[in-house]
Design a binder for these strands. Sequence first.
DNA 1: ATCGCTGCAAAAATTTTGCAGGTAA
DNA 2: TTACCTGCAAAATTTTTGCAGCGAT
Lengths: 152, 152
Amino acid sequence: MKTCSHQHTHKRQELPALTDRLRRHARKITGPRAAILEILRQHPHPLTTKEIFSEMPRGECDLATVYRSMHLLEKAGMVKRFHFYDGAARFELVEEGSDGHYHHLVCIRCSGVVKVEECFSAEIEKKIAAKNGFKAVTHKLEFFGVCPNCQG
Amino acid sequence: MKTCSHQHTHKRQELPALTDRLRRHARKITGPRAAILEILRQHPHPLTTKEIFSEMPRGECDLATVYRSMHLLEKAGMVKRFHFYDGAARFELVEEGSDGHYHHLVCIRCSGVVKVEECFSAEIEKKIAAKNGFKAVTHKLEFFGVCPNCQG
DNA sequence: ATCGCTGCAAAAATTTTGCAGGTAA
DNA sequence: TTACCTGCAAAATTTTTGCAGCGAT
């Protein structure tokens, strides 16, 4: 998978901060989990489960463990899951306190990903919650298009 | 799957109009395709491939054909594909000319779906396209929360 | 010491594909 | 007629699960 070359200032979290967050969720810090967090930390773009797996030092941990860990991290609110239309879920770290509120601009040709800051106000979320009687309303927003390298 | 009971005024398209759209894309109108369009037409909520399959009269067509048809309809811009976090793609008809620009509010407990009109302006899309050099930028937006029936 | 976590292997679930025959246009 | 479509069956892909043993706290 190529990556469209638009760098984005990215506040990279420290690994200890990440493990602390896990601990706060009363989960154990194990080798595979630390490795997964470290890999996610080093990749500012969403990774598939297989990509994470193959980045593991010495292919050390089981693929099933990666799947289980991603579910766990997702429930703990530490990662966000994305679907970019190629049949594989992708994951990215959520920065602490940030609510994970940024979005992606995905190239439909090369699957390259650019992070996007634009977002609409939380007002709309509240309005929608109130109007429909829902609680704890969040949203997922992704943009799709054709990146500069793939045009023409 | 239960459905949260919020009705929404829904302009239902006629089947002939749908088959015409298919024809305009130079695709043949076959039994399975007409059946799929008819099923989607009767269900204003996103359906999984299996749901569509089991709604088929007399289980008449092959599951593989449904998958193939969904790809075809998607490429023709006649259906939209959604991922609501339970591992199965869901599809819904796109109304002609509407660009498919509405969104969903999905209950994270019962997977019930409510259609939502709120959307931000196309200005943001243009801004994002310009800023990143992308073309043909569209977006997908879904809201998640807990519906009235599933609270407490 | 305890309970949760992991590896392994098997299974389940989802989606894709090859091929031979059938059908819409 | 002819190119496209379909059913069937098999395979590929993605994800989940059972179980016995290991390991973080």
